[in-house]
Design a binder for these strands. Structure first.
Length: 886
RNA sequence: GGGUGGUUAGCUCAGCGGUAGAGCACUGUCCUCACACGACAGGGGUCACAGGUUCAAACCCUGUACCACCCACCA
């Protein structure tokens, strides 16, 4: 071929953008994706070609934070990888707008409280209150629920906008919210199924009770908080003579004392077992018993059992069938009880009632102070208070300690099924693996069934009514459950089959259960919500079990555990094959970012400053399960990578465009190019392996470092040849650059979806017949199988010389293009052979004068060595010339 | 008290049997036909500590200390 036929003059890149402004382009690119529907799920594709993600529905509570960005991007990276592997992706987004967080938010935003006794005001309008709320306005349940729905809609719009801005590739047609009609139906169907299977029951029993929110809570929502307290040494009399000291932190519960216990082996108290004690102040006669749960080492070794101080009290009370002396009411105040009535016995009712009258109506904290005062006065408080720090149980969203309050609640049976639930957990693949331990430990430590009823309003109603007898007493043992084809129901306004609305609350009529379900009762169904469980059996068969559940590790005991439980109870299966646990974003002081104050760092603010790709880069750097320090300098690095990708793509493209005929793998003939491609093949194969195992961070690290190597070294080495080499060598460089570029764009695509798609469209799209990189196939070494294998050493030796020359130039403070007049190389025979293959490129890239080149052969194991001599400065040369002329 | 993860350069982290790595920060250079939103080079580490296994240990084993988290601990 003649030069003038093949080698066009390099086309200027006039049609390519000069610079890339991600803040402008990214939203436009996101819009293109939406227009082209490239993330749409295709329900006609068979299960084995589908990848199903059980996306966490974020709690709708005002704003997403940087921790959300972090974990959702990690999932999106996996989704995008799977999509490029040819999978049809089922990637929905749900909003968890159900429950207490929403109620609280609405209360505070609008200054309202729900009061079911207030009548509904149709069309009532409510304004947001700015500043402090002076007085809460009581509004009807229906108005309150409408307001909750309105507010969550507003928040959900903001959430969706942020996800789109970040390039989260969900299919927005698969959107649900947990309090919506569909989720209510699924949640109630779950209840009915569990009821039919005998896995759910209602019982009147002491439940963990939050007095602020006035609702029962489940074990999984309880957290311990360290509280300062005091031991109070109280003097108890023994009936028939004698006394002993009990050390207690809760003297206010004295009136609730139903027994006194010590360890059976405790010599100090052996003689008292079987006798009765008389409590101070209230003079109640309580049995003194032996129980192994009393620890001789703690306190004075003898303790009072109250109804109820803690779970040990509840267990002992239940086991020994002791009387119930409940003091604390649902609002947290001491009830108005009378000694001499019911279970409250006393040997001196008058004195007992006199004492108790000072406690009635008080909250626990005040009652404690008053009790201490009374005990000190009566002389029953011995010595000084001894300060102690104790772990006290709180509802995770609550501000006051939990109390045990007897009440009727619905429970799902967990304690009968621990072994099976462990087994189900084992069948799921945990990423990272060690997180399974947390699940295991939680299941083994369960001490209560799952309480799912909540005394709240904004939630899924329990689909149950109770029949009333002639005196209007409900019969809780014979609940009337809804019929499956009539869901969802609201027992407050709907009436059960076989009854009419007039019978509500009437003798021999019915009442609806006033409670709603725990949020987790619904969110534990997300894989079934997505699959269309109970409504679309084809879809269900395709979507359930899901492939992946991504979630945070602190909710293993709740969300992961409950989901596994429900999947087993409903479908005798695991809910998903894999669970990926993301870490937390932590501040410098190791506090969780989402909880720490200083809310200036919002995703929206960061996106004014950094590309979405840069935030994604930071997220993609963190391994699963691992906490990550919030560090803005990483965003800068990400931003730099985006810019580099833009420029390197543009530059590579300039070279490729010189080619007349389409390039192919067969054109890659030059040894240096083959060597380079060989390295890239290794990268591709490792990247695929790691991605399959959810080790995306390792992929980003490897791809990134390889890409910088490409820009700094390979591109420098070949650009001269691509520009002015002979036709065949030129074509080889061009073909190599073309493939390299397409590989990098695809490897980076899951992490940096915006910039990769932008540059993909310039050339690779046409080449691959695929207009978005996100529909392109993940690179594989197979793509290059028609090409002969290269020798990695060719590239590596060339790079060594390049580096040696650069080092010399830097040391001499010369520019990179400064000419090299002499180069002495010492190397093994093999290295010399490798180097000779790329010599022309090396000389060109380093500005080396071929005449000054000397290569000497050394031992086989010798390291390659290069001694570099720079040309003398021009002034010196001129001076020399001048002096020689003289 | 039980469990899990961690401790590697000033900072953030990778490496997980074969001569200590990256990025940031720092220092010094360089406008080289993609990129100064850039490039090149340089300084900087008893890989927490103590034992052990091994020809060889940051890496495996045992123990200790410290950090974080999960669970338990309410007399």
């Amino acid at each position: 071929m003649e030069n003038n036929e093949t080698d066009q003059i390099q086309k200027p890149a006039e049609d390519l953008p000069k610079a890339y402004d991600p803040l402008v382009r990214e939203p436009e690119i996101a819009q293109e994706w939406e227009n082209d529907k490239i993330y749409a799920y295709d329900s006609s594709v068979p299960r084995k070609n589908t990848f199903v993600i059980d996306t966490p529905p974020p709690t709708v509570s005002g704003a997403l934070h940087i921790g959300h960005v972090f974990s959702y991007v990690q999932t999106d990276i996996i989704a995008r990888y799977q999509r490029m592997c040819g999978k049809n992706i089922f990637y929905p987004m749900g909003w968890d707008d159900n429950g207490l967080p929403t109620e609280r938010r609405v209360q505070n935003l609008y200054g309202v409280r729900c009061d079911p006794s207030v009548p509904y005001e149709p069309g009532a309008k409510f304004e947001k209150i700015s500043g402090k709320i002076k007085e809460y306005r009581n509004i009807s349940r229906k108005n309150f629920l409408e307001l909750c729905a309105l507010q969550t809609k507003e928040d959900e719009k903001k959430y969706e906008a942020l996800w789109r801005r970040l390039g989260i590739s969900v299919d927005w047609t698969k959107n649900y919210n947990t309090v919506g009609e569909y989720c209510r139906r699924v949640s109630q169907r779950s209840f009915l199924d569990l009821f039919k299977k005998g896995r759910i029951y209602n019982a009147e029993t002491p439940a963990l009770w939050d007095t602020t929110f006035r609702t029962a809570v489940a074990q999984a929502e309880v957290e311990d908080r360290e509280q300062k307290g005091n031991f109070h040494d109280l003097k108890f009399q023994v009936e028939g003579g004698g006394e002993f000291i009990i050390s207690t932190t809760r003297p206010e519960l004295l009136a609730a004392c139903v027994a006194v216990v010590a360890n059976p082996r405790d010599e100090r108290y052996k003689k008292l077992f079987g006798k009765n004690a008389i409590t101070p102040l209230f003079k109640a006669r309580v049995p003194i018993r032996a129980s192994k749960h009393a620890d001789p080492e703690k306190g004075t070794g003898i303790l009072m059992v109250c109804t109820f101080g803690d779970i040990a009290d509840v267990e002992y009370w239940r086991k020994e069938n002791l009387p119930l002396r409940q003091l604390i009411g649902r609002d947290g105040r001491f009830l108005n009880i009378k000694f001499g009535e019911g279970a409250f016995e006393s040997t001196d009712c008058e004195a007992a009632n006199a004492a108790y009258s000072k406690l009635a109506g008080l909250y626990a904290k005040k009652a404690k102070a008053v009790s201490v005062e009374m005990l000190r006065e009566s002389g029953d408080l011995v010595g000084e208070l001894k300060p102690t720090v104790q772990a006290v149980k709180f509802y995770e969203k609550g501000e006051l300690p939990l109390e045990f309050v007897p009440c009727r609640q619905w429970y799902i049976k967990l304690l009968d099924n621990q072994a099976m639930l462990l087994e189900q957990g084992r069948r799921v693949k945990w990423h990272p693996e060690y997180m399974f331990k947390r699940y295991e430990q939680w299941v083994e430590g369960l001490n209560q069934d799952w309480c799912i009823s909540r005394q709240r309003y904004f939630g899924v109603p329990l689909p149950v009514w109770y029949p009333l007898d002639a005196e209007c007493n409900p019969d809780y043992s014979k609940p009337i459950v809804a019929t499956p084809d009539k869901l969802p129901v609201d027992p407050q306004s709907d009436c059960p089959a076989g009854y009419s609305e007039e019978q509500r609350g009437k003798p021999n009529g019915f009442i609806g259960d006033p409670d709603v379900m725990d949020t987790w009762a619904t969110s534990s169904l997300t894989p079934l919500i997505s699959s269309g469980w109970g409504e679309d059996s084809d879809s269900h068969a395709k979507i359930f079990p899901a492939d992946l559940r991504p979630q945070a590790h602190e909710i293993i005991r709740s969300w992961a555990f409950y989901t596994i439980t429900k999947a087993w109870m409903h479908e005798s299966n695991i809910p998903w094959y894999n669970i990926a646990l993301s870490g937390w974003v932590v501040a410098n002081d190791h506090s969780k970012m989402s909880k720490s104050k200083g809310g200036a760092i919002t995703p929206e603010n960061l996106l004014q400053k950094y590309p979405a790709d840069a935030l994604r880069y930071w997220s993609g750097k963190a391994k699963l399960g691992q906490d990550t320090m919030y560090d803005e300098s990483v965003f800068k690095v990400g931003k730099r990578l985006v810019t580099k990708l833009f420029n390197a793509s543009k530059f590579a493209l300039l070279q490729i465009r010189g080619a007349q005929a389409p390039l192919s793998a067969a054109d890659i003939k030059h040894a240096l190019d083959r060597s380079w491609v060989e390295q890239l093949k290794i990268l591709v194969s490792q990247a695929g392996e790691n991605m399959r195992n959810f080790e995306y961070a390792a992929v980003l690290l490897a791809v990134e470092s390889s890409f910088w190597d490409f820009c700094d070294n390979y591109l420098e080495l070949v650009k001269g040849r691509a520009y002015e080499g002979n036709p065949e060598d030129r074509r080889s460089a061009q073909a190599s650059l073309e493939w390299t570029l397409s590989v990098y764009l695809r490897l980076f695509a899951p992490f940096l979806p915006f910039i990769t798609d932008e540059t993909w469209k310039w050339h690779s799209a046409a080449k691959h017949g695929c207009d978005s990189v996100h529909k392109a196939s993940w690179p594989s070494a197979d793509e290059m199988k028609e090409m002969k294998a290269g020798e990695v050493s060719v590239y590596l030796t060339a790079k060594k010389i390049l580096e040696a020359v650069r080092a010399k130039k830097a040391a001499e403070k010369r520019s990179v293009k400064w000419p090299v007049s002499g180069l002495k190389i010492e190397a093994s025979k093999a290295d010399i052979k490798a180097l000779e293959a790329s010599l022309a490129d090396v000389l060109l890239a380093c500005c080396i004068d071929r005449k000054g080149l000397a290569i000497a052969e050394k031992d086989d194991d010798a390291e390659i060595k290069a001694e570099v001599f720079l040309a003398a400065p021009e002034e010196d040369v001129k001076q020399q010339e001048a002096s020689s002329e003289k």
